[in-house]
Nucleic acid binder design. Structure first.
Lengths: 196, 196
DNA sequence: TAGGTATTCTATAGTTCTATTGAAATAAGG
DNA sequence: CCTTATTTCAATAGAACTATAGAATACCTA
């Protein structure tokens, strides 16, 4: 089944990776295909052997960016853990992803809206799935009495994704950060609040 | 003291406003000075009577975007209310600002990093002030026993600003939204969590 | 209404960027 | 080693964009 990756496959992945790095650094509109080519040590025109257009490169980066997040959320749901555990797992995974695949996360976060509407279908699809899965998680937890039923599940989803986005602000941190400590404090705030 | 605004002043403000609208719609790098000029019904070159450069326009929009937020935070602190009230007021104000001055808020949020470093001083200054004020607010609340001392104030700041940013996701909402309901549920989550 | 100032326009230089094309180089296979 | 397929390059068309300069027009005040 899984053939060994051809040279083309390897170079293609390198090209996506270079695009991710450049877009993360200078934003999609702020970077040029020349920047990407330079990072790959090839000439600007050669990029078009791998991408039909600059937009196609952005789409590839964004899809790669969200894919793991959806898969992880699905795996968390499959584990049937408590909502508290689920929230903690999600926050840890996102913070860890930010460390491991920062470029993809940043580009997905900052530049996905630069994909023209007619191309955005596949990204939106994944986003909608992600939100839906999370909303179901909350509704189920409310049904089981774990979660306050006075809170609108839709608002819960936005609050948690907002919290998750805020982990991006840790990225430019000078000193090493303690992923688990930060994720645990975030979940504590979301789950139990910060009041004494 | 406050002279009546000259025609220049009024047109200048209109130009900043047009820039805000265009940048919010297509992002800074994605929009052109022609787009801004079209929105003002003047020719592209005429814009340069009001701005020395496109970057200067972005800076003006961003400064306008953050100014009110800092002022509001200062006024909240001056009122010496409980931390719970302070958080609720901040969330309400931000959600209301998003309704009233969406373009400025969106541009500040999405495009401020497009300002070149050598120009970014004044914006950073305001951002730093904002974060510092908020951190002081939390430290003080911890000192008074209102807030759990186990939570790192720095993390609290990021969590709350993350929550605040997440209100942006309400902007493209089709139906009218109930600002107070949403803000109150957000503060409830931040203050007391969502567990039952 | 004349003269001056403020505002906008026209035209364009100069740059940068995307995407294409056909040729050249490189690698792979027999 | 020769043939063929893959990958990269060189060169460039063509479009878009920023910023400038000087001419034209609108506006105001005396």
């Amino acid at each position: 089944m899984a053939d060994k990756p051809s040279k083309y496959d390897k170079r293609y992945l390198a090209a996506v990776d270079a695009a991710a790095a450049v877009f993360a650094d200078k934003s999609y509109h702020g970077s040029s295909t020349l920047d990407i080519a330079n990072r790959l040590d090839i000439k600007q025109g050669s990029l078009y052997y791998y991408f039909r257009s600059k937009e196609e490169a952005l789409e590839a980066v964004c899809l790669e960016g969200i894919k793991h997040q959806v898969e992880h959320l699905e795996s968390v749901i499959a584990e049937q853990v408590s909502i508290a555990e689920a929230v903690t797992m999600l926050l840890r995974y996102n913070l860890q992803s930010l460390m491991d695949r920062a470029d993809y996360m940043i580009v997905f976060n900052d530049d996905r809206q630069a994909i023209p509407l007619e191309r955005r279908g596949r990204i939106r699809e994944q986003s909608v799935i992600y939100h839906k899965l999370m909303e179901d998680l909350f509704v189920q937890a409310q049904g089981q009495g774990e979660l306050s039923t006075e809170l609108d599940p839709h608002i819960l989803v936005r609050a948690l994704t907002g919290l998750i986005s805020s982990v991006f602000s840790w990225y430019h941190q000078k000193n090493e950060i303690d992923v688990d400590k930060i994720a645990d404090q975030y979940s504590h705030i979301f789950l139990s609040g910060c009041l004494r």
